[in-house]
Design a protein around this nucleic acid. Structure first.
Lengths: 329, 329
DNA sequence: CTGAAAGCGCTAACAT
DNA sequence: ATGTTAGCGCTTTCAG
């Protein structure tokens, strides 16, 4: 493989000049520029990116930590991020944590080993205190999930409001016994539950402990949840399902058991993913502006790389969330 | 940031020795090893990956070109690849071509600039002749889509057989007028159509040109396709839809127009993605062993990196394909 | 078993 | 406007 030296020799110039044309620096005569181009072409020269990175102390790469790509939420989020990244000549390194603490920590080393210039969390597995120490490696920011202790930019939705309007809608439709499905390990999960509870409290409704389901994410989980509900003596009449996947599973299982939706049981989704609209009945759900959130996140990252936004300053960017009314409630 | 030099000084040793312990070389006294570990910890030292790459002339990274991550087929494929990659200390660089020729070509430069050691195509936008010249940069292989001219390993399914068994099943169910949906730009698309046609020919059936649909991929496309079919004078009674997304769109639209499936129109999907089972009626489809294909692909890549499989030798690995009978046919 | 030294390929002062 | 030079941080001969 040809090196910059080979190009310089063939063009009869110095390495510096070749480097200048590679990097589009000014002050190079057109004539010499052509000479360089010709030599590069002749030798099929391509700059070695490791050498460039080592020398420039910059990789123009951003790590994006996601739990898994098979959850369609994240590909959409990435699509938004990438749209802005390409405009700024940044490359994304997509890292699947598989919800594994050790893997997440491992990916943080990308920052320490200078393999990436910045890092974006879209989910958080470890304690924030553990993660915080990695910040020296470069800009770190939070998208989607968040920790209020984190002194960094956060791009998120108002989850309290989201679940509040969802729950209120269920109540307005006459439901008094509503099951809730959502995690409590994350702050996002806690906020969602808070919003849900706020709506219930406003209407003097209560929720019994066994109507609360934790850590359900998949279609299968939704099916199982429905079966559990059906086995209860006092059954909820509606489920706040926390994700469109779980909601879809509930609907699917309900129908195969001969239940009518929303008459026998109402289902509210979360996210507004493609399946929401495909279900029969179509899933009423809470829409998150996923792609916009991705875009905004990358815009903030770009600003941080340009030092326009400080690394260690808390700053919350909140995007709107809305209820999409279909047929399942 | 601390460098290897700092660690060496603090430990009272040479850079070479420190490097040896970083890379787990034999022949380092335990005592000195401990000294090094202690110093590394004290200085919070992490090796600079650009420097390592430059020196080792290796990145332990494989580029994976996919059209887009929002098509759920690809996240599953990647999941399979990654399972094998992590076991072999390889990192994946996931690249979305967005089905753009120029973007695809651009990603090929990752090989020339030595940013990755190998590259995997899961879709192909450019002519093979254009792509072939990039092979010098390192192992290149084809997964899912293929070009028979390509003199490299190919991991694929028997698409001719897949669509043949699908079409035969439709015929066995009594359908004589079957619409076909699929691309012709790729060899994969051509093979699928070939298998489909084979089945028709065996049963002396014909297909009229306007029952053939091209380049449909999304749910929306499926909906539109159904409307077009309904506007025809002589309507097909079944659709070979080429993907579960398109199939789902057809079903959704059919139901909202009050048609019964499969009585009024039968639908056959392709892939067996999660939505296939969720649809009402559930989608009969042709299952591709996506995850296994990903795994096999990465296994072959590992062999190529170890020079166990030659770079420029054609070799086809074919995985099984099967019909999943549900309710839509 | 350990250290000295060379150099991977590139860019950016600095000098002219 | 161009060339000279000094590294970026690391690994790997080679010697001992």
């Amino acid at each position: 493989m040809a090196t910059i030296e080979d190009v310089a020799k063939l063009a009869g110039l110095s390495r510096s000049t070749v480097s200048r044309v590679i990097n589009n620096h000014p002050y190079v005569t057109d004539r010499k520029k052509q000479l360089v181009y010709k030599a590069m072409k002749e030798l099929e020269y391509y700059p070695n990116s490791s050498a460039q990175r080592l020398r420039k102390q910059r990789t123009d790469t951003i790590a994006v930590l996601v739990p898994r790509l098979t959850n369609p939420f994240f590909p959409f989020l990435i699509e938004g991020m990438e749209a802005i990244a390409v405009k700024n000549n940044l490359q994304l390194l997509i890292c699947q944590t598989q919800q594994d603490k050790a893997k997440e920590l491992n990916f943080l080393n990308l920052l320490k080993t200078k393999q990436v210039d910045g890092l974006i969390f879209t989910s958080i597995e470890n304690e924030w205190a553990t993660i915080a120490s990695y910040q020296e490696g470069g800009p770190v920011l939070l998208c989607n999930e968040y920790k209020s202790e984190a002194k960094i930019p956060i791009i998120r939705l108002d989850q309290i409001k989201g679940s509040y309007i969802g729950a209120r809608y269920l109540i307005e439709k006459g439901h008094k016994r509503i099951a809730y499905c959502g995690g409590m390990k994350t702050e996002l999960g806690a906020d969602r539950q808070k919003g849900f509870m706020n709506a219930l409290r406003e209407h003097n409704l209560e929720i019994s402990e066994n109507w609360i389901f934790r850590d359900l994410h998949s279609i299968e989980c939704g099916k199982k949840l429905l079966r559990e509900i059906l086995a209860m003596e006092i059954r909820p009449t509606a489920v706040f399902s926390g994700s469109d996947e779980v909601g879809a599973g509930i609907i699917k299982e309900a129908k195969s058991l001969g239940l009518r939706i929303p008459d026998d049981i109402a289902v509210l989704g979360f996210d507004d993913q493609p399946i929401a609209e495909l279900m029969e009945p179509a899933l009423t759900t809470i829409r998150q502006p996923i792609k916009d959130m991705g875009k905004k996140t990358m815009e903030v990252m770009v600003s941080m790389l340009a030092n326009e936004i400080k690394n260690n300053e808390k700053q919350v960017f909140e995007l709107p969330i809305e209820l999409i009314i279909r047929e399942s409630v």
